[in-house]
Computed example of a mutant assay.
Amino acid sequence: MNCLVVDDSRVVRKAARRLLEGFGFAVREAEDGAQALAACREALPDFVLLDWNMPVMDGLSFLRAARAEHGAERPVVMLCTTENTQEKILQALEAGAQEYVMKPFDAEILGGKLTQLGLLRDAA
């Protein structure tokens, strides 16, 4: 299973990569939505872990552009952010995110979300 981790923080990308590789994903990284869109055009990942607040192109702009180009189902997108208001969560889901995870997250939280999405059989 291929994954793209999109975050402007190198530390967050590395931490997410370590967790996802532990779950058996092949991971690529992007620093912003524009890089992520280019990466998706190159090779569409199965799953995108997407930060909301980034320079150049934010997560929501990337999500809308990716959905317009690739459709509503692929890639599976989990928004990963500190934005936690009901309004923001609804905005993300309406833009096409399938799931939402709050920062900071750990292997148990991420594994549970991936299992809910059907991307992992068992996170344990």
Rank of each mutant, 00 (worst) to 15 (best):
G24Y: 01
L120H: 07
L37R: 00
E73H: 08
F25T: 08
A65K: 08
A34G: 03
Q98Y: 06
F47M: 09
W52D: 05
E94A: 15
C40T: 08
N2M: 10
A65Q: 12
A92S: 15
A65F: 01
R121T: 14
N84F: 11
V101N: 08
L93Y: 11
A66C: 10
Q86K: 03
M102I: 04
E83K: 08
K113E: 13
L93H: 14
V76F: 14
T85W: 14
A15W: 00
A38M: 00
A66L: 02
R10D: 07
V12L: 02
A95T: 04
V48P: 04
E83D: 15
F47D: 01
A107G: 05
M57V: 01
L119N: 10
L37G: 02
V77F: 12
T81D: 10
R64Y: 01
L117F: 13
A43S: 06
Q91R: 15
P45S: 00
T85M: 05
V11D: 12
N53W: 06
Y100V: 06
D51H: 06
K113F: 03
E29I: 03
M102N: 06
E87N: 09
R67S: 05
D7K: 12
E69Q: 12
K88Q: 15
L79P: 07
K103L: 13
C3A: 15
E21R: 08
G96P: 10
R18P: 01
T82Y: 03
R67P: 04
R41A: 08
L90N: 14
G111E: 09
A38C: 01
F23V: 08
V48N: 02
M78C: 15
L79N: 02
R41F: 00
D46S: 00
T82R: 02
A97Q: 11
E99I: 01
F62L: 06
F62N: 01
L19N: 04
Q116Y: 13
M57N: 00
M102F: 05
R13M: 06
P55R: 07
V101F: 05
V48F: 05
V5T: 09
K113T: 13
K14G: 02
L19P: 00
M57F: 04
T81Y: 12
D51S: 10
E31D: 13
G33D: 04
L49M: 06
M57H: 11
A107N: 05
T115G: 06
I89L: 09
E31I: 00
F23W: 03
Q86E: 14
G33N: 15
E94R: 15
G59E: 02
R10Q: 08
A92N: 12
A34Q: 11
A15G: 07
T81W: 15
D122T: 12
G24A: 05
A36N: 08
G22I: 01
E73C: 10
Q86H: 07
E31T: 04
L114V: 14
E29P: 02
A95M: 10
P45R: 05
R17T: 13
T81I: 11
V6P: 11
G118C: 09
A68V: 00
L20T: 07
L50I: 01
S61L: 02
A65R: 09
C3N: 08
I89T: 09
D106H: 14
V76Y: 01
E99N: 14
R64L: 10
A95D: 14
V27W: 11
V11F: 10
F62I: 05
